[in-house]
Computed example of a mutant assay.
Amino acid sequence: MAQPSCWIIYNGNLHPKKFMDFAEWTAKAAEKKGITPTIIKNNELLVTFKNGKSMISGSYTNSSPDFVIFGDKDIFLAKQLEKLGIPVYNSADSIEICDNKSRMYQTLADHGIPFPKTIIAPKVFGDLHDESHYYAIAREIGFPMVIKEAYGSFGMQVHLVENEQELLDLMKSLKNTEYVFQEMIKSSYGRDVRINIVGGKAVASMLRKSETDFRANVSFGGKTKPYTPTKEQINLAAACAEVTGTDFAGVDLLFGNDGSPLVCEINSNAHIRSIYDCTGIDVALHMMDFILNDLKERGPSHE
């Protein structure tokens, strides 16, 4: 059997080193598992419609991989690769669910998954002219309150508001940005648990804790240490991956006021260097093992 090949796709317009780092890290894991990887920018593969048909044009039209690791959120490109019959990990639908926090929480609620009290901000076009919903939201959630923009990574689009004026000011500055209002879980202030799920199983876990910020993200000064999750935490993280359809995911859990875990969010494109630095576990190797086994189960055309 010929050595399998894969494309590892990342966003060509994102310059932070961590995006290329993920692509290079997974490429090394692929090579260790006997897979030939090619790292490709998303803007080198153009979703094109011509003569009533859809296709991909660009630099790689004369080749096709056995599978794709999609380290980006270019949903229409992922969908087009799937239309061509190429297995994509994670799937376009699962990435789309996790990428938009409003849709993610709605999906979790459809399956009874516990997370902090959340309200999706009403749709705004342009500037905010009607803030009447603010009063009901303030009564329901109270202060301090967390505001999460629907799209964002590494905690960069997550805000903490302490009072009514801060909330109004932020609502006006966000304008037509999609976002959600969320209860602040005081018992989990500045700390959470990241569990990496691959193929429905927990393969690595770490505790993240910040002494200076309500967000535990490493990008905001959070420190990490290896963590042994409880059975309840493992089951909750695995359930998150299942209901969102992610083959692999980084699930962030909060410590609820009563001690039970709550879902903070699910990352379909979880970066894996920090958990390796913390635990010594290479999540990418587990990802490759899962993919190779999944291709075998799909049949000869994908082996």
Rank of each mutant, 00 (worst) to 15 (best):
F181C: 01
F248Y: 11
D192G: 01
F181I: 02
Q3D: 14
T107P: 02
L168S: 05
Y151W: 14
P4G: 08
Y134E: 09
H133Y: 15
F125V: 12
Y134L: 14
N176W: 14
K73P: 02
Y227P: 03
L292C: 10
K209E: 15
I69C: 02
E297V: 12
P229Y: 05
F248R: 01
G256N: 09
A27F: 02
R273N: 12
M1S: 13
G259C: 11
V158Y: 00
N43D: 15
A29L: 02
V180Q: 10
T177M: 10
S205F: 01
L262T: 02
M145S: 00
I185K: 00
S64E: 12
L236E: 00
G299W: 09
S219M: 10
G126A: 08
Q165N: 14
V218M: 10
F143A: 02
P261G: 10
I291K: 02
G112D: 08
A121C: 08
Y135C: 11
S205M: 06
A237L: 09
I141A: 07
A238E: 14
Q182L: 03
A270E: 00
N257V: 09
V251A: 04
I9G: 06
G12T: 08
F70R: 03
N11A: 13
K18L: 11
L262S: 08
D99Y: 07
V193I: 15
D66W: 03
L46C: 12
G152N: 07
W25D: 09
M156K: 15
L262V: 07
Y89H: 05
D247W: 15
M1P: 11
V124H: 02
P37W: 00
T38Y: 13
I137L: 07
K201L: 05
Q157D: 14
G250P: 01
F70G: 04
D130I: 09
E162R: 12
D192L: 05
P114T: 06
D130V: 09
E96G: 06
F67G: 03
H15K: 15
I113H: 04
I137E: 03
G190E: 04
N62I: 10
A237K: 04
L285R: 01
E242F: 11
S57H: 10
F220P: 02
D192N: 08
E265Q: 04
S153K: 05
N51D: 14
G112Q: 06
G199N: 05
F154N: 08
N11C: 10
G155T: 05
Q157V: 10
N196F: 14
I97S: 02
I234K: 09
